[in-house]
């Protein structure tokens, strides 16, 4: 074992094979059968590999080494645990290897920030984490059940309440302005952050940005006009509509006075 390069390669292979953080003595044991370097020699080589960025030293009371960094190892273990379903933080800790336990809290926070893991709303006094965003449908039945119980006390039958709920849901789907109330200002701010200070956004750019949400011209135009009626936005007309081509005019909104709205701004006063 005189060639340090061979030893380095064997140490890295051993760490990668085991996959968990190991002390220098344990790594030595994991080396292939035959003559082995001393623990001190293994420790020196591992330290050199850490300096070279090829092996990661793990924080803790005793020096441990791994082929992966502690946060990455912990993240992988957390994701593996959550692959089986939503879990609380305590449940995750119980399911990951001991070496990952100290890093679960940090790994979870990073994964939530990166939108790879979602914390679901508290239910039955527990907050669970999952690999998918919370589905409101999971929460609706018990809330609706509570509302139904309350309304039943006022004399409404279950059937009447269910029919009303169906009517309510159908009516809600026909209200594009409600969606526009959130979508349009959000898209305006994405197109020009200074829209928050009243700066205008071109209608054609906004239409393009919201093409997925409002695939046809009429729906988009109606949604914007509804926001204008509600006093949430102002609409400014192009000064010289005669200069616009048919294609350009189509991308704007008819102002009903022979002109076209070409810019929209949040109404702040």
């Amino acid at each position: 074992m005189s060639d340090p390069n061979d030893l380095d390669a064997m140490l890295e292979t051993a760490l990668a094979r085991v996959g968990e953080p190991l002390s220098a003595a344990t790594v030595r044991k994991a080396l292939p059968a035959g003559p082995k370097p001393s623990v001190r020699e293994v420790l020196l080589r591992l330290t050199a590999l850490v300096d070279g960025g090829r092996v990661h030293a793990w924080p803790g009371k005793s020096a441990k080494f791994s082929s992966v960094a502690a946060p990455r190892y912990a993240s992988d273990q957390v994701l593996a645990a959550l692959a089986q379903g939503p879990l609380t933080e305590a449940e995750i800790k119980r399911r990951v290897p001991a070496a990952a336990k100290p890093f679960v809290k940090t790994a979870l926070a990073d994964l939530v920030d990166a939108r790879r893991v979602w914390r679901h709303p508290k239910r039955a006094s527990k907050i669970r984490c999952a690999l998918t965003p919370p589905d409101p449908l999971d929460h609706l039945p018990e809330e609706i059940d509570a509302v139904f119980k309350k309304l039943a006390k006022l004399g409404f039958s279950q059937e009447a309440l269910r029919a009303a709920l169906r009517r309510y849901a159908a009516a809600d789907e026909r209200k594009p302005a409600t969606a526009a109330g959130d979508l349009v200002p959000g898209a305006m701010l994405r197109l020009n952050p200074q829209a928050a200070h009243g700066a205008l956004v071109y209608v054609a750019s906004l239409r393009a940005a919201l093409a997925d949400q409002f695939p046809d011209k009429a729906t988009f135009d109606a949604a914007v006009m509804a926001l204008a009626e509600q006093g949430k936005v102002q609409l400014q007309s192009h000064a010289w509509p005669g200069r616009l081509s048919a294609e350009e005019r189509y991308a704007l909104i008819d102002d009903g006075r022979g002109g076209y709205f070409d810019a929209i701004g949040l109404r702040l006063e």
């Binding site: 020009n192 200070h197 006093g231 102002q234 109404r267």
Partner: peptide
């Protein structure tokens, strides 16, 4: 660097 816009008058203005 900074942007703003004139506001068209609503009914109350």
């Amino acid at each position: 660097q900074d942007q703003g816009a004139l506001t068209l008058l609503d009914r109350s203005a």
